[in-house]
Amino acid sequence: MAIKNMFTKQKPKKIKYATIPSEAAKQDVPEGIMQKCPKCKKIMYTKELEKNLHVCLGCGYHYPLKAHERIKILLDEGSFRELDAGLSTANPLEFPGYEEKIEADRKKTGLNEAIVTGVGTIDGYPSAFAFMDSSFRMGSMGSVVGEKITRAVEEAIRLQIPFIIFTASGGARMQEGVLSLMQMAKTGAAFKRMSDRGGLIISVMTHPTTGGVSASFASLGDFNFAEPGALIGFAGRRIIEQTIREKLPEDFQTAEFLLQCGQLDAVLHRSEMKEKLSFLLDIHQTGGGER
């Protein structure tokens, strides 16, 4: 927002009932006019927050993004073509109560599963994409997530374009048991196949990326990035604390901590994400093809 507009634009918006959340906001869909940062408690206009790419204007906290929000802020307008939207969850282990949980999350999020895949462009450079969405079953990976990633990678190989994935996941989906575990092998094998053919793969880990997702494709990019403050790790904090019987430091398993441990190429602020990805797509233009 331009400074000269700052006061004039907001002045007429002195709305007293602004903080009363709508019905939808109560169900975890932020649609209120104002937002309070969960970290520094700063109160901001939602519009302002959106303009700032859902990053707190006070402390820089990166709000989790829905798959479609990320597509909107990252890709060239109208360039996204979704793949495999018709893939949906079955209940392969006949796990009690699983279908109901999936149905509830479908209604809540408007998504079919915890991931959206497709092809699109950034500054005109084409790429295949996968955007995980933690609002659906914690972004957990079951058969559909594994299959959609694998197919998107296959599409990238076919079109000889790069593959970029934004991860956000609590790990493997318990209700699909060992089938979820095997999606780690399936996606890993697809990444290997693409890599052997010279394709460029970029992984951006967002909050949270843990368990079976961090221990498979999320860690397998030619470039592994993370958003600031994202929780990234294999085992859960509580389990580690119980095992080693000591308290872990506050910043343990954050993106910044992992960067220091040498586990990431860079931590990228959301405001520089598009520019950096665009640069990588530019200098790897010869990549993504059959060698």
């Binding site: 860690s219 085992a235 441990c261």
Partner: peptide, 23 residues
């Protein structure tokens, strides 16, 4: 599940083995 294991890249080590074994 340990602190040192995380610091040295438990996730990456597992992921890398899966990736390489596939090929």
């Amino acid at each position: 599940p340990g602190k040192a294991a995380e610091e040295r890249g438990q996730s990456e080590a597992i992921a890398r083995n899966i990736f390489e074994m596939a090929g």
